[in-house]
């Protein structure tokens, strides 16, 4: 009897490991060494051109006590994350609900809404976005038409950051697509049953859509939070890598890149990265912990 249970347990473990083996192999071969190496670099003054020299906690001490730009970049990044994540998710869910119906035009609409995300981080999008927000760009023309004052998007640190935030919100396509896929996974019978009970659209949304979609909402929230924290390309291409004006767009990852690659301080950059990792990991953990209260799974973990 015990032997049989043991065998069953072994088999179960073998099966599990077999399924995730691609990840484990890939992790050990391609990812583990670079991660360990970057952890090691964070305690060195590695400059990429000569062998790393051990400096203990120097990088961390400088970062926390003697680098005003570091704290500036932390502030900018937090502002960015707090603005982008809710805006992007709400927007994406709203559009996804609009597009989650059967209609001949729907494929075209989806493609249209997804297009901004496709052009992604290319050079062309940077040029275009900078042009849109130029002193006499379309955004300012619209603002003046509405009787508002034109904004100097490139002269005001907060306005410049909002230019980045709006770019991120505009490229909401990936979250939208995931929501769409999630919405499509909700069995239509649930809605039919609710309709029979006479539920109105708002009730349907909160009683069926949100709970059924909650695993996907959790996924989107976590992934968007992580990606907002490590956002690099938009800031880099729109400010030509400077973080101007007055460091208003100096996102954490951009500052890290400047330190590591432009100033040859890979050690310092790695230290910055590990602090960021710890912060994101804690936030993600908190999100996972709270998910017990609001995420509804059809199956218990692991079945």
């Amino acid at each position: 009897m015990t032997k049989a249970t043991l065998m069953k347990a072994i088999r179960r473990n073998v099966a599990g490991y077999a399924f995730i083996s691609p990840f484990i192999i890939g992790f050990l071969v391609f990812t583990a060494f670079p991660i360990v190496a970057s952890f090691f670099y964070s305690f060195t003054s590695f400059d990429m051109l000569t062998a790393p020299k051990f400096v203990g906690l120097d990088n961390f001490v400088t970062m926390f006590t003697n680098d005003p730009k570091y704290w500036k970049s932390v502030k900018v990044t937090l502002y960015y994350v707090v603005a982008v994540v809710p805006l992007r998710l709400t927007f994406a869910l709203f559009i996804a609900m609009l597009l989650a119906r059967a209609s001949r035009m729907i494929g075209v609409y989806r493609t249209m809404f997804y297009l901004p995300s496709i052009i992604g981080g290319s050079v062309a999008v940077a040029i275009m976005w900078r042009n849109l927000f130029g002193d006499d760009g379309v955004i300012n023309i619209l603002l003046t038409l509405l009787g508002l004052d034109a904004v100097r998007w490139f002269g005001n640190p907060t306005a410049a950051l909002w230019m980045l935030i709006m770019l991120a919100v505009w490229q909401f396509g990936s979250s939208m697509l995931i929501f769409l896929a999630g919405l499509k996974n909700i069995p239509p019978t649930y809605y039919e049953a609710a309709a029979v009970d006479g539920a109105n659209p708002v009730q349907k949304f909160f009683r069926i859509t949100i709970p059924m979609l909650s695993p996907v909402i959790l996924f989107n929230t976590i992934m968007q939070t992580i990606s907002a924290f490590i956002t690099f390309i938009p800031a880099f291409i729109i400010t030509k890598g400077t973080g101007q004006p007055l460091d208003g767009t100096l996102l954490y990852s951009l500052y890290l890149f400047r330190r590591a690659f432009q100033f040859f301080q890979m050690g310092y950059g790695s230290a910055m990265a590990w602090i960021l990792l710890i912060v994101i990991a804690i936030l993600t953990l908190i999100l996972f912990k709270t998910s017990r209260f609001w995420v509804h799974y059809e199956t218990k973990e692991g079945n």
Binding site: I127, R130, N131, G134, D135, R152, W153, F154, G155, T239, K240, Q244, P245
Partner: peptide, 10 residues
């Protein structure tokens, strides 16, 4: 020009 004008040049 102020720095924000220069920053807009592509």
């Amino acid at each position: 020009p102020t720095p924000d004008i220069t920053a807009q040049i592509k």
